[in-house]
Design a protein around this nucleic acid. Structure first.
Ligand code: MN
Ligand code: MN
Length: 303
DNA sequence: ACATATC
DNA sequence: GATATGTAATGCGCA
DNA sequence: TGCGCA
């Protein structure tokens, strides 16, 4: 349990983590505080942590809640406890950046205490940051498209992947759309994964022009379609992780769902900080397969 | 949230 | 002492 | 060469 005091020192296993400003209201409309956010992450941690382990984290900090100013941070703050592990990544610009990694519950609470509401991990583990463990499609409704179309698009993308011998997983983004992920056999570099995702997205947009677009320029995206965004499959980019709370009015959560749920008709707002822990403790991690050594798919040739 | 700079 | 500022950035496609 | 884009 997260302590009731405004500031607290919490023993977590062999670590001690400092938690601060616990009564600060992060969601004024819902009356949810930073303590509630930390408690949520503690509650889902056993399902979340395996997905973050050994991956560099990009921090998006909201020190004053969802309506306050936010900022990105990559470098681990110098004030970190000495037991926070980092991942040093050389950038083409010449910058060597020490990203934090979330290796256990203590480091997860430390990161969330910085004001990180959603969590953004690299697709590739730190030992080889250019060889991702998955490919994904980020489905976003363009202006004028409703969530029914997003779900329909998801099944179209799923069927295309199945036809190529893969079995994608699906989650709500917690924002406006859905995320489809495929666990791949590690080997291809990020650019090769990107090339495959781009080719498939463009093909599907061609086959379903009334439903799907894959245009990267906003002005070129036709009204009422669903963007199949392949472009996030790139070095150094991230998406909100599974079980991430989003800085939305309803405290929505990026939640793994079954394909049956997608077909029956779920909504983004069905999955919130207040009900996802119960769901996850009942169903377990629907995305455990994303990390399993078996059941990974070789990246197909560009379709 | 916090270190640093500038007034 | 008060207030302002920074805190990330790749790289592809195209004009 | 520089913008748009996430
Ligand atoms: Mn999205
Ligand atoms: Mn997107």
């Amino acid at each position: 349990m997260i302590p009731e005091a405004e500031n607290a020192t919490l023993g977590v296993g062999r670590r001690t983590v400092q938690l601060t400003n616990l009564d600060k209201v992060f969601w004024p409309e819902l009356g949810l505080t930073k303590r509630d956010l930390l408690q949520y992450y503690a509650d889902v941690s056993s399902f979340l942590l395996p997905h973050l382990r050994d991956r560099a984290m990009v921090m998006k900090r909201y020190p004053n809640g969802i309506h306050g100013k936010c900022f990105f941070m990559k470098r681990t703050p110098p004030s970190r406890p000495e037991w926070i592990e980092t991942c040093d990544i050389m950038h083409k610009s010449g910058n060597l950046i020490d990203f934090p990694m979330v290796q256990d519950l203590a480091s997860l609470l430390w990161l969330v205490n910085l004001g990180c509401i959603d969590l953004n991990q690299w697709y590739a583990r730190c030992d080889d940051v250019d060889r991702p463990d998955y490919l994904h499609f980020d489905l976003d409704p363009v202006e004028g498209a409703d969530f029914v179309k997003v779900r329909e698009t998801a099944t179209v993308v799923r069927d295309a992947l199945v036809a190529l011998g893969m079995e994608p997983l699906v989650k709500t983004s917690g924002s406006k759309g859905l995320h489809l992920y495929v666990p791949i056999v590690r080997g291809p570099v990020q650019k090769e994964v990107w090339r495959f995702a781009k080719a498939l997205a463009k093909l599907l947009a061609q086959e379903h022009p009334a439903l799907i677009t894959a245009e990267y320029r906003i002005a070129d995206r036709p009204h009422g379609r669903v963007l199949v965004d392949y472009n996030q499959n790139a070095w150094g980019r991230t998406l909100a992780s599974l079980y991430s709370v989003r800085p939305t009015d309803r405290a929505t959560v990026s939640t793994p769902v079954t394909w049956e749920e997608v077909e029956r008709g779920i909504e983004i707002a069905d999955f919130r900080m207040q009900n996802v822990p119960q769901r996850v403790s009942k169903l377990g991690d629907l995305w455990a397969r994303l990390l399993a050594p078996r059941g990974r798919f070789p990246l197909p040739e560009v379709p």
